[in-house]
Each structure stands twice: as C-alpha cells, then as structure tokens.
Write a protein that binds this DNA or RNA. Sequence first.
DNA 1: TATCAAAATCACAAAAATAATGTTGAAAAC
DNA 2: GTTTTCAACATTATTTTTGTGATTTTGATA
Lengths: 253, 253
Amino acid sequence: MKRDDRRQAIMDMLVRDGAVELDALAEHFIVSKMTIHRDLDDLEAAGVLRKIRGGATIEAGTQFESDFRFRAQQGLDAKTRMADAALALVEPGMNVIINDGSMAAVLGARLVEKRPLTVITNNAAVIDALKSEAGITLIALGGIYSAKYNAYFGMVTETALSVLRADIAFVSTPAISGTEVFHMDESVVRTKRAMMGAAVTSCLLANHARFGRTALHKLAELSDFDTIITDKTPAAPDEAPIARAGLALTIAA
Amino acid sequence: MKRDDRRQAIMDMLVRDGAVELDALAEHFIVSKMTIHRDLDDLEAAGVLRKIRGGATIEAGTQFESDFRFRAQQGLDAKTRMADAALALVEPGMNVIINDGSMAAVLGARLVEKRPLTVITNNAAVIDALKSEAGITLIALGGIYSAKYNAYFGMVTETALSVLRADIAFVSTPAISGTEVFHMDESVVRTKRAMMGAAVTSCLLANHARFGRTALHKLAELSDFDTIITDKTPAAPDEAPIARAGLALTIAA
DNA sequence: TATCAAAATCACAAAAATAATGTTGAAAAC
DNA sequence: GTTTTCAACATTATTTTTGTGATTTTGATA
C-alpha cells in the first residue's frame, strides 16, 4: 500500500466514521505514528480534514468528496461511460462549456475527439489537457484559483461568462434531491449558474450516488437542464419525481 | 552538473554555433553518448532543436526563436537579476499583476518569497507555478489560450481586468524605441494596457537588447511607467531620450 | 545494390537523486 | 506528569537518470 492509497483510505474511514484516531491508524496501516501525523498534516493542509489531538475529524459531511484529488481516481469507469454519453451531444464546431469536477475533467480531455471546438472552462485539469491541442480554441475562465476544486471561481469567472455564449454547458453536481440540484459552496453555485445562463442548452452530469442528497445551496431545478446523464438507474424514490416531471434521463451503463 | 543544466548548456551551444555534434557533447560533458542521445531526443520532442545524424541543429529564423519554450531557455541569468530588482518593489500583502513572457514567468515564480500576496496574471507559467502555493491568492485572468505566448488574451482577459485593481503591474516588452514601447501583437497590446490601467503603479521589464527596436503597435509611452528595469545600460543613443524624459532606470547588473 | 562501419535504438543493469518512513528527543498540550 | 506533537536527522523505498552491450538502422561507397 502506497502513501496516497493510505491517505485515500484514511479519508474513506473519516467519511464513514466522522473521526479517526491516530494510534489506531498507525496500527491498522502498520506504519509509525509519525507517518500518520504527516498524512494528517498534509490532508489538513489540503483542507479536507481537521486535525485534533490524537486524531482527526471531518467537518460538514460531503465536503471532502468534492476535493478533486480524492475524486479523480474514483469510479473512472463510470465516468468514462458518462463521458461517452455526453460526447454524443457535442458536434464539431460547437462552443462547449465545461465546469469544475473530476467527471468534467474526464469529459474535457476527450473533447479532442470532436474537434474543431471552442471549449470554455474554469476547470484547471481541462485547461491543462487542452492547452496544447491543435483544433481546440481554449477559452479559460479566469478567477480565484481554488485548490479544493482545482478550478477557478469568483467575480472574475462570472464576469467572463457574462461576455460569452456557448451551445452547450456541461454541469456536474454532488447532490440531487427531488427535482432540485444542490451544492455546498456558494461561489461554485454562482459559477455553475452563470455557465447555464451563458449556454443555449445545459446538460447535468451526476453519478447515481448523488441522488437523494442535499447540500446547503440550491443550484437549480432539474427542469432547468435539457439533458441529465447518470451512470445507473437511481433508487426508485429518487427516480419517481424525475419521471413525474417528465425529464429525460440518460443512463450511461 | 545536473541533467537540466546540461540540456540548457546544449541549447546555449546550439544558439551560439547553430549546430552541435553528438560525440563532442558526450566528451565535453563527460557522459555517455546514450545520455546525449536522450537529451537531444527530449529537446527535439520539446520542439527546440532538430536531431540529425551525429548531432543536432537549430533552424535560425524559423519558429524556434519565437517560441516561448525557446525563449524560456535564454538569458536566465539576466532574468534572475532583473527579477531580484523587481521583487524589491513588492511587499507582502500587495496585489500584483504579472503579464506574459518568460521574464515575467521567472519573476512570477519568485513571488512566493513575498507572501502573503495576491497575484493576478494571464501567464500560464506563473499560474502553474503559484497554483499550489499556500499564502498566494492566485487570480487567473481567463481568455483565449495562446500557445505562442503561453498566456491568455482577448476580450475575456480585458473584461476580467476591468473589475480588478492592483498595487503594481509588471509589464515586459520586446521593443523600445525613443520613449515609446511597442509590441507586434494587437491583442497582447490591449491586455498589457488593461493591466497598466488596473494597477496603481506600473513597472516595465526590458532586457537591454530590446532598446532601439520597434514593432507594429505602440503599447505605451515610457513615461506611462513608474519604474523601468533592465539588465545592462543600453547603448547611448537609446539611453539619451530616457534620460531626457527624466525617467528612472534600474540597471540590475 | 550489396556491403560495411558508424550511428541510432532498445532493453536492461547500475548508480544517483528524491521521496517516504522511522527514530529520537525536546517542546507543548492536556 | 503523562501523552501528544513537532522538529531534526537517519534509514529505507522509490523513482529518475545514466551506462552498457546487443541489435537494428542508416548512409556512404565499392
């Protein structure tokens, strides 16, 4: 087990239990306490947990899950399938908006398959991936860099979007409940809204586990989207309101 | 001597002589031919030289010299000294604007020495360098990515600058003639102007070889800048108008 | 065009450099 | 007063860089 795997595992335990003990971790992973100290220090510096005497805790439940470093590796398979479905909505010559998130990063990197394209994004992973690609006009949305999301947000980002117009915006979310879409971070909500406002059509990307969750800020109604792409049929109680609202749901299985 | 130093040295030789021999390089650096092969392969992949049987050449006058990857290699020493002088103008807590260019990239990376700082830039090299630095609030200016300059330009960039205000802007230029500053590219000119407009004070960075040159578009008057930093005293005919205009010139020798 | 020597490439081994972890002891927290 | 944390250094892993020799390719030349 490598360092990053161990840290990932620590985060998993933290999400499950809400807290971890330093001694227990050292014993469990068969490493010294100092190593666990360093893990917790770095994870704290990355802003995904809070170190306390003898261990660490996680604050608001869903917060860490949006950290790109920990999401990037997970469920790559499902992400690839969802990206396939999303790519079907893109035609060469379009102006495409891609938002933050690791799902969006996977999709963004694969946009080269549809070039020539103009890609507008605040997602640093997408910017890095498309920078050197011929046939892609890359418009980076500026803004304040957020290490947590590996993306740019804030007034600059929203101002930039206000002078742009795209054919389609791909927006992802960590929480869908009933017919409403949520996000825990206000500045992220504002940017996603601005993206939807700047695009003729909007597509929501959400893996099945995101259904039946809420977060502090309401981002939009499901009906604000033209298409919704997910990886598995959501549980019945989550799917019912969507069906009732008559929304099209693409299952990328 | 480390790998990158050796590659730097190879590029220097190439610039001076126009061509290098593989055997001679291996002997000179006291490494195996295989190592030189790998150096040349990688430099070729980076697009800064052309490998030929028995050595490598550089095609003067072609895109090499105008490519940022090539410019980034040159005169690092002078750039470091100029960066030192520029850093003296920065105090912790300031809002600093950094423009495109390899000189600016060197300066940008060293801004960590003055943190905490807010750094506003359209320079992709600076963005990459400061992204993960604690104590640096990084505001990326969005815009259309230009591979030639490794930076972002266009309406989005200018719009972003219009809602920002900084203490100081560092602007570099390829051409100064008389008391006027020039640049060959219109969108770059507009961005640099917007940067100067968004900052309380402006500092011009120009290596001595840039004096006595012109380019298509006039960027500004020298008097629009509060400080000018260069690496060597410019030739007398170039210096006279500056002295006459009563401008302060910092020579970072 | 057949041949040969030089050059280039490949695959793997060795060495160097870097990163990760462990240990110890002092400072800080409870 | 004990436990926990932190810092400095030692040790161990891991990765990167370099070297070596076998093999293929290249270009000149008979």
